[in-house]
Design a protein around this nucleic acid. Structure first.
Length: 262
DNA sequence: ACATTGACCTGAGAGC
DNA sequence: TGCTCTCAGGTCAATG
């Protein structure tokens, strides 16, 4: 699930439902998912504090601890946040559980343990340490920046779009969607694209990601001309009806329409 | 120095 | 039904 639009939906959810409520207790069920911090430190730094604001960079979600740093969530391939009413059973694969003073709780759920949880002093430093590029939906990523970065990339455009060091937030699903909407073949070399193609990709990055957020990142609610709901074996292009082609780029399953995307 | 591959985890679904 | 195999929207270290 968790590429930029999914994480943005979770952020907005946390922002609406999870702020300004003191954490009465925090439980760590899987210490392996903690990054750069022990369960003991999580307890001491979170208990008694509340989340005062939220932020996001690429696929990372941040919640501020009343000016005492930020908790960081990374969702891996299967991560979710579940808001639980008092008395509700804790979901399977809950790795970290926040119990608030009002008895509600927030479960950080990872089926596979590919996600991470941590606490950091500031976001800018974290983004620099991770080597993340500008967030795909931020003002930081303007057309000029994108063109500069693509020109320096010799690999495929699909590989470039999913490279978090170039642009943060786009993953396997939405890179396929962006390239489909731009009618560009995923195997094109990033640095060989002309200015017009780069301009088109820039426009589609914003358009596709924002559309997905507006529709709560739910594949069932995407526009009829979107690839996403058809992105499976035997799937058919929603525009021309051609059977979709599948190949592997940078180790990731890639779907495209050989008729629409030259 | 770059781009690509394999390892890390676990469960779902396909094929037998 | 049950077993085995492959694959899945993530990143990072190792490899070419």
């Amino acid at each position: 699930m968790p590429e930029l639009p999914d994480v943005e939906v979770l952020r907005s959810y946390l922002d609406k439902k999870g702020l300004h409520q003191p954490v009465h207790q925090v439980e760590v069920f899987a210490e392996e998912v903690l990054e750069g911090i022990s369960a003991r430190e999580v307890h001491s730094q979170v208990t008694g504090r509340s989340f005062s604001s939220t932020a996001r960079h690429g696929k990372y979600l941040f919640a501020e601890l009343n000016g005492n740093g930020w908790v960081v969530f990374h969702f891996g391939m299967t991560g979710q946040l579940h808001w639980l009413q008092p008395g509700t059973r804790t979901p399977d694969h809950t790795r970290v559980l926040f119990i608030f003073s009002n008895r509600q709780s927030l479960a950080f759920v990872l089926r596979r343990k590919l996600g991470r949880f941590g606490i950091i002093p500031d976001i800018t430093g974290f983004v620099a340490t991770k080597g993340l590029g500008p967030d795909a939906l931020s003002k930081e990523l303007d057309l000029h920046t994108l063109q500069q970065r693509l020109k320096k990339t010799s690999g495929t455009i699909k590989g470039a779009l999913t490279n978090q060091g170039l642009i943060a937030g786009i993953g396997n699903i939405y890179s396929d969607e962006i390239l489909f909407q731009a009618r560009i073949h995923p195997k094109n070399r990033a640095n060989k694209l002309d200015r017009e193609a780069m301009r088109l990709i820039f426009r589609k990055i914003g358009e596709v990601l924002q559309t997905a957020i507006d529709r709560e990142a739910d594949p069932a609610h995407m526009p009829a001309t979107y690839l996403l709901p058809h992105r499976q074996k035997g799937g058919v292009c929603p525009v021309c009806g051609t059977k979709l082609k599948q190949l592997r780029i940078s180790g990731r399953a890639t779907f495209y329409c050989s008729n629409c995307q030259q």
